[in-house]
Every structure is written in structure tokens, then in C-alpha cells.
Simulated assay, not measured.
Amino acid sequence: MSVLLTQAQQQELLDITRRWIDAAENIHARTFPLPEVRFDLNGQAAGQYRGGAHPRIRYNPRMAASQFEAYCQRTPAHEVAHYIIDRLHSGRRVRPHGPQWRELMRAFGLEPERCHQYDLQNVPRRRQRRFAYRCACQEHRLSTTRHNRVQYRGMKYRCIKCGEVLRSASDD
């Protein structure tokens, strides 16, 4: 059975998102426009921020609907903090949960925790296939995403132990 996020709940999440942006404006004494907000995220992520020319915050409607109060207390602030840090440090690489993000979360009066503690029992899991890769010291299991990056984009991954570039086990 799928739990749906109502229009009223979506509006409440939008309002909460705007309030966290207002809080950030007070903290940093500057304005931040409301980014696009979507309710289309699937899987086990509670929320997601995507920067760039068209910044957007995505919320997981199934997770939000099933644990609405807890979700509202934590997830919007977490994603807004990503948005604000991205706007403040535009053009510079800043770690997603780095010191700037943690400082803003504390300024919001929240503990800077990366991961949520929501009940995931009714949330469907997507499983990626794993591909065997080798280096000088061991076998590695790369996800479909990383495997495709190697195959189609020429990316290279290195073993953190021996430093050798990983090669597909099927090439041996």
C-alpha cells in the first residue's frame, strides 16, 4: 500500500522550506530565492539538493507521508542548508556535509547529522547489480553506476590500499 502526500502536506513542506530559507537570510543578512521544490524523489533518500543554474530541492513523498511530523522537523532544514551553502560558496567545491554545512545546521539549532533515522520498512529498495573488478591486492565490487562510468566515460577508480587502477575482472 502506497501512502500519498496530500496537497496540504506538500504546501506545509513548501512553507517550512521557505521558513528555513528566511532563517538563513537572517543569519547571513542577504536574500535567497526559493529554489524549485519537487515531491518526486524515490528510494531511501529523504531529500536531495541539486545545484547549478536551476537549483532544486527534491523531497521523498512516500517517506514524508508515512512519518510527516518527524520528516518536517529534519529534512527541509537539511536540504535548505545544502542550498544555502551552495549559494554562499558558488563556484567553489565545498564538501556536502562539510564544516560550512555543519555550522549552518548548528545556527539553525539542529544537530548536523548526515543521515536520517526514518523507518524504511515500507520504502522499496533499488538494488544495483555489482561488477567484479581487480587490482594488485584484491577484488572489488563496483556498482552499476561506477561500472558504466568506467565503460562509457573512461573514468578510472583506484584501490585505496595499493593505489592501482581497477580493471574489470572479465578482462583477465
Score class of each variant (00 low, 15 high):
102 R>C: 13
49 Y>A: 03
134 R>I: 10
96 P>D: 05
37 V>M: 00
81 A>F: 00
62 R>K: 13
103 E>Q: 15
55 P>T: 04
50 R>A: 09
102 R>Q: 15
121 Q>H: 15
141 R>Q: 15
46 A>K: 03
33 P>Q: 00
121 Q>G: 11
50 R>N: 07
154 G>L: 02
81 A>L: 02
43 G>E: 02
124 P>N: 07
50 R>E: 10
112 P>E: 10
72 C>V: 11
160 I>M: 05
95 R>C: 06
150 V>D: 01
116 H>P: 07
162 C>H: 01
138 Q>H: 08
100 Q>V: 08
115 C>E: 11
34 L>E: 04
45 A>Q: 10
143 S>R: 09
97 H>S: 04
64 A>T: 13
43 G>A: 02
64 A>V: 12
122 N>T: 10
39 F>P: 00
46 A>Q: 05
88 L>F: 11
66 S>Y: 11
76 P>T: 09
130 R>A: 12
96 P>K: 07
125 R>N: 08
87 R>I: 07
157 Y>E: 02
113 E>H: 09
151 Q>I: 11
75 T>I: 15
106 R>Q: 15
36 E>H: 03
160 I>G: 10
75 T>E: 14
91 G>I: 08
133 Y>R: 05
30 R>V: 01
115 C>P: 00
52 G>D: 04
49 Y>W: 09
43 G>N: 01
140 H>C: 08
53 A>I: 05
44 Q>F: 03
35 P>S: 00
71 Y>H: 12
61 P>M: 09
154 G>W: 00
51 G>W: 00
88 L>R: 09
66 S>N: 14
130 R>D: 07
83 Y>I: 14
98 G>Y: 07
101 W>Y: 07
133 Y>W: 10
120 L>G: 08
98 G>E: 06
132 A>N: 11
48 Q>K: 13
74 R>I: 11
104 L>R: 02
151 Q>A: 10
51 G>M: 02
140 H>A: 07
118 Y>V: 06
151 Q>L: 09
160 I>C: 08
97 H>D: 07
78 H>C: 11
154 G>S: 04
127 R>S: 13
